[in-house]
Design a protein around this nucleic acid. Sequence first.
DNA 1: TTGTACGCGTTATCAA
DNA 2: TTGATAACGCGTACAA
Lengths: 338, 338
Amino acid sequence: MITIKEIAQQLNMSTTTVSNVIHGKTGEVSPQTIERVEQFLKKVDYVPNISARNLAQNESKIIGFALKARADKYSNLLTDPFVSEIIGGIEETIRKAGYFMMIYISSDTAEIMRHVSTWNVDGLLLFGMLDDDGIRVSEKYKKPIVCIDTYSIEGLKHFTNIGLEDEKGCFQMTQYLIDCGHRKIAFLSDNMKGVDLARFTGYKNALEANGIEFHEEDFFKILPHESQVEESLNELAQRSKNYTAIMCVSDLYAVMLMSKFHDLGVKVPDDISIAGFDDNLLGRLHRPALTTVHQNVKKKGQLAAETLIKIIKGKIGASNQIQLPTRLVIRDTVKKIK
Amino acid sequence: MITIKEIAQQLNMSTTTVSNVIHGKTGEVSPQTIERVEQFLKKVDYVPNISARNLAQNESKIIGFALKARADKYSNLLTDPFVSEIIGGIEETIRKAGYFMMIYISSDTAEIMRHVSTWNVDGLLLFGMLDDDGIRVSEKYKKPIVCIDTYSIEGLKHFTNIGLEDEKGCFQMTQYLIDCGHRKIAFLSDNMKGVDLARFTGYKNALEANGIEFHEEDFFKILPHESQVEESLNELAQRSKNYTAIMCVSDLYAVMLMSKFHDLGVKVPDDISIAGFDDNLLGRLHRPALTTVHQNVKKKGQLAAETLIKIIKGKIGASNQIQLPTRLVIRDTVKKIK
DNA sequence: TTGTACGCGTTATCAA
DNA sequence: TTGATAACGCGTACAA
């Protein structure tokens, strides 16, 4: 772990010169000195001490990626391919831009913010935020924040959000179901907030646009916690007898439901049609292959990271609402009826 | 962002005293001073600057998690639920122990090590290492390293590895297949190194233990890259006509293969039996549900992080070969024949 | 073109 | 029980 000071000593010059060469401020240094220093740097395999640099410059080159976990979904959250896929997109972008990525998972917003300030992170990527207060707290921190898939934040206008055309995508898929002749269509989700609410709204609007009335009981609420998911699925399967199609808020739930149907001898799509949302591995590998709404998760991660870095560098303002497009992927789980 | 110095000024005392209170070195401070400082700290919401602390103490409290990506598997790596699940286990453990987690993905070992030294990370978790030189390079770095799922590293004895009874698990599953009456059993994998080799060895040994000869062509090599996976799967499906069962090196491949079989009208398990390895979401949700070898991925992550932290704290030595147990999970993809 | 000296926030040593 | 002060490694005015 050699330091600049030591290098300067051994080379019989000042730390400034060494530092200048390291940072390519070559205009001020004589060619032979540059040569000499560069040779030496390579030889001793110099690596800067980032803590010292951070301290001196008051920046960290760290981008924090905070997942706000919800107690009832924690285990789901981390087996969800979505998370690793988005991490992939984020990490790649961050690394290529010369930043570093620190991950923090917590259900406590205050804790997340403490972590952020103690490390003096240059910017924050926030995923899984739902409640208004969470963001409100964060307003006293001055560093840039980019949210991912966040809705319903009061005063959201201060924050950039990278989202998806959730409502539109779900509207289109529901419209497709209706075009296929379905009129009794349920909506499956585990809550009515944020992304799920947007997708639900799309579903409901499509219903209304086609003169189909929505009833309370058309909302199928799944209990995502491990201990309750089974019985929850059983109950829903019973209730589904009154429907010809189910619009699911995610591929995960769509596939879980289809597995349950399989166990009960209900045939998809002959007995009931299923549509998902996300287009991930689960739905692609399931048979019959899942008809679903596609989103590009990796790109979402990349875009979030890119946007944050631009804000950090002052290239763009801190308030952009971006919605990535969706696309219907018609496969084999929706049947045309009549 | 208030500093200790400012606090000391405003309280009219020295930084030492403030620092002592912060660190609970209360034996040396008078009760009323403690009280006064603590009140103030709470009031101003003091957060330490970790860079400064790192610099002063020459430790970072950072644990690096480096994924060594292989070019041909990169996209797989990051959609694999395995990765997010293990990250979950690691992050939780690290956070609870008061450390921080930094993630770095690269195919270049030297780059990983540079990253590690520049941040002065206290310890390194290494996943995806295959080649000997990778580790050998790392030997010049003095900080503790814990590998995950690493085999075939020469001089592995210097490193702790958290692994799995891969060979035993695969032996047992193959034995189960044989007990079910299968004798023509293929093995599906994308390579013959590390974990995959260990599993293959278990398979082969089980064959031999039962007097079944292994032939070169019984090894089904899948090409994992997106562009080739389809044709690769098609070819394998053809070849599988000569077999009654296929032992797959992972649930992912097992499910991919079953999807292909479905498309070709081949019935699992009636026409052919399939066994997987990992017991992840994919296999659990597939129908027929996958018979597979269970491993506890989250626990693997936790154990890796716990072990690393113990080594960092000097509680245990740096050389432990740990193998987590496996367990057969018999579901519906293997048929008893005859 | 090169060197000196200081500041970043914290901890640690030693003296008062 | 408390307070000065040095040290950690780096970047950078400013001086030479």
